[in-house]
Design a protein around this nucleic acid. Structure first.
Lengths: 271, 271
DNA sequence: CGGGGATTTGACACATATCAAGAGCGGTGG
DNA sequence: CCACCGCTCTTGATATGTGTCAAATCCCCG
């Protein structure tokens, strides 16, 4: 049997899903200067280049990427990189640290839409309406490369490979979102948690870290929000996985003891 | 048995979401000629231009859009426009008709990821990996404009406004997906159904149709898949809404009797 | 005009949420 | 250095929303 994933569609978001701008004015206020590093970053020399926006670029194309990033910005744990309603100016590449992105409805409901780690790009949510539609907050002290969108447009105007790369980047996000929809729409709680852990593991591996031991930067509640579960359910499932010998959990420290076992749980066929 | 297509993904989709290529070779076979209309389409003369890809383009920019579309393709109800695993060649703009897009997991689980109507673009899911990652099927006899991706790259190379438009298009999809995540992750069944109906209504209005009366092209099961509910639940909620005087339902004919009421249900604050 | 899929509806099961209590841990201040 | 406080996490008991299974009706298509 075939397997697959996701889609596309240009149709608008549900009104339900309409995200409320938070407080545009507040966002306009200048960030503390100390948080902006004016050091010119060199994508071509960055050890994240193969994970990040310039991934796949070569020679002169890679050199062009250097023109994109002039500044970095530090974001302390708990602070936001941007909020819904903020004017859209730049994309951000995570240089170090860990972020969550989330939407908040009128009713105060929160939905975490993703967790971003080094090399991943944030901010494209603002391209369509010129204002950000989600919030991005650091889960630990972090640093991002600021990629002014106008500059990205300028440079990509003459660098086809970069244009292509931006398309890929956004398409990848769309494909990822389809995966989350699949998870939220048709997986049971245990499957969701297993998928979540395996996804994290895979991403850590891509960054040169151990596949089976890592530190969760997010709270149970945030995991729950992302997975469409309550925090107690997440906690219980961690405990259950531990009883099954799949996992060793100590608060935010996770050790995966049986990757295959987790995969089995994730792939459970419901019928 | 499908071949597994390894989709690159930095922040990749869950493995659960790993897409299995369906049968790439099969997709290469020529479509029946009769289904491809060689008539040169004129975006600038199309009545969908303000909803579709060229939306917002003016003058020469709009004229450039005419270069993008050389062919149209008809897809009969029940047939697929493309399937997961098919090589990615083109984007498609729905000219008439109605589509669903969906992913299928190894286990045979299906998740509808969206419904597309006239003016909406399909196919961007294939940009990242050069192969489609979702399936797109017509829910009624439909016609799409075929936009070869290489041509889109050529034309947008010299038309900044078009580049911008493509970015917007993809960003809009991402924002929409966040809305669906919110829906799937934190709304109760009644809220999901209300949001779904209001979203459909809004999109019909944008196309000049009545806001309160329309024909559902999809089955209860497909609505349920999209909303993360079982078909029986969708049916029951339609009935409940009818009892509440919010809706008049007759199989696939829907009349919204109380838009505000539906909105109230959708915005229920849970706390 | 017949037949099979789609829809509705009921009874019941079960997964997950809710409510509640307590434990663990880190930071702060006396 | 210890005690306290607040936050996070765990765990139990119970509630409830949605799924599952089943049957009847409808109706669309051939």
């Amino acid at each position: 049997m075939p397997a697959v994933i996701s889609v596309t569609n240009p149709s608008g978001p549900y009104d339900a899903a309409v995200m409320l701008g938070r407080n545009p004015e507040a966002a306009v206020k200048p960030r503390s200067q100390e948080s902006v590093v004016a050091l010119r970053s060199q994508c071509s020399a960055c050890n994240l280049r193969d994970l990040c926006l310039p991934c796949g670029l070569e020679g002169q194309d890679m050199a062009s990427a250097n023109e994109l990033v002039y500044t970095r910005r530090r974001v302390k744990a708990g602070e936001t990189l941007y909020q819904a309603g903020d004017p859209f100016k730049s994309l951000y590449a995570v240089r170090s640290g860990f972020f969550k992105s989330y939407v908040i409805t009128e009713g105060g409901r929160v939905q975490v839409t993703g967790f971003q780690m080094s090399g991943e790009i944030m901010g494209v949510d603002g391209i369509d309406s010129d204002h950000h539609t989600i919030n991005a907050a650091a889960l630990e002290d972090s640093e991002v490369c600021v990629i002014p969108y106008v500059r990205l447009e300028e440079v990509s105007a003459r660098v086809p490979a970069l244009r292509r790369q931006v398309h890929r980047l956004m398409a990848r996000e769309i494909v990822r979102d389809h995966g989350v929809m699949l998870l939220l729409g048709s997986m049971r709680a245990e499957e969701r948690v297993a998928a979540f852990l395996l996804n994290l593991s895979k991403r850590f591996v891509a960054r040169g870290y151990a596949a089976s031991e890592f530190h969760l930067r997010m709270k149970r509640e945030e995991i729950g929000s992302y997975l469409g579960l309550k925090l107690e359910t997440v906690s219980r499932i961690f405990s259950r996985f531990q009883e099954l010998g799949l996992l060793a959990v100590q608060k935010k420290s996770i050790a995966i003891l049986d990757i295959d076992g987790l995969q089995d749980i994730m792939h459970q066929t419901e019928d």
